[in-house]
């Protein structure tokens, strides 16, 4: 379980995050949503221990995330960034995913048969095994995002945080990634934290919601509560229409 205890973060006297506390349980699928500049990415970076809050702390399995050995932390939580920089890192897909094994490698970085099996397993799970020999620069945006996810999975951490990964994807790629995340959450029991602007996407995977507004915790709710209580409208200060079909709810601006 990840516990965020009363964290605050300031940049030049501007409060980016103020006094946020929340819990993320094992097996949860949770979306962090909120308007632009609300502090979602900062919160994500604090949760993953990438940046240090000015006050408060984050614990993962009751250990302060900033005090755990870096490789041990990598075995507990992994992170999928929006994009990959490949200007001097145009690795093959296999090499890129292999880097996810870093926290488990010995001093010489030997990729053993066991590592290679896992690397191939996660490539198959994300449907990119056929891209094995391709270089990152030759892939489409959707393929790149799957590679990115596969590398994070190879880290074998129970918690995975994905930052706006669907931003550059077409509807089909989005749908595939969507299904992949649901499968990882329900079948493979990963705990998934999404940072997203795509409300329908978050609704479709039936996640819980953590709503952030002006650096403060606005509300925590399940999908159905978000819809029934119209929390989206007060969060974004605008009116929405909810369209229902076959248990699915789609939200559009009024």
């Amino acid at each position: 379980m990840i516990k965020v205890n009363n964290i605050s973060y300031r940049i030049k006297n501007n409060d980016i995050i103020s006094n946020i506390s929340l819990n993320i349980k094992q097996g949860q699928m949770v979306s962090i949503i909120g308007p632009n500049g609300a502090g979602k990415s900062t919160l994500a970076n604090i949760i993953t221990g990438i940046i240090k809050p000015d006050n408060g702390n984050v614990t993962i399995y009751d250990k302060n995330i900033l005090k755990i050995n870096k490789k041990e932390k990598a075995k507990l939580i992994s992170y999928v960034p929006q994009q990959v920089n490949y200007s001097v890192a145009d690795f093959t897909v296999e090499d890129f995913v292999a880097a996810g094994r870093y926290p488990y490698l010995d001093y010489f970085g030997t990729i053993t048969k066991e590592h290679l099996d896992k690397i191939h397993y996660y490539m198959s799970l994300t449907n990119i095994y056929n891209l094995k020999e391709r270089h990152i620069s030759t892939l489409s945006g959707g393929e790149r995002q799957k590679v990115n996810i596969a590398a994070a999975l190879a880290q074998e951490a129970e918690f995975i945080l994905l930052d706006e990964i669907s931003s550059f994807l077409d509807p089909k790629a989005k749908y595939e990634i969507n299904n992949l995340l649901v499968k990882l959450n329900q079948k493979n029991k990963y705990s998934i934290i999404l940072i997203t602007h795509h409300l329908n996407y978050a609704l479709a995977v039936n996640s819980s919601f953590i709503c952030i507004k002006n650096g403060k915790l606005f509300s925590c709710a399940e999908s159905n509560e978000m819809v029934e209580n119209n929390i989206f409208s007060s969060l974004f200060d605008m009116e929405f229409i909810y369209l229902k079909e076959n248990q699915r709810t789609v939200i559009v601006p009024k």
Partner: peptide, 23 residues
Amino acid sequence: YSYHKELDIISMGEYIAKSRGVN
């Protein structure tokens, strides 16, 4: 040379490197 793994991952980007557990 003893930092070849770290260099691979650092060149992928700061956040990826931090996520993978590179110091």
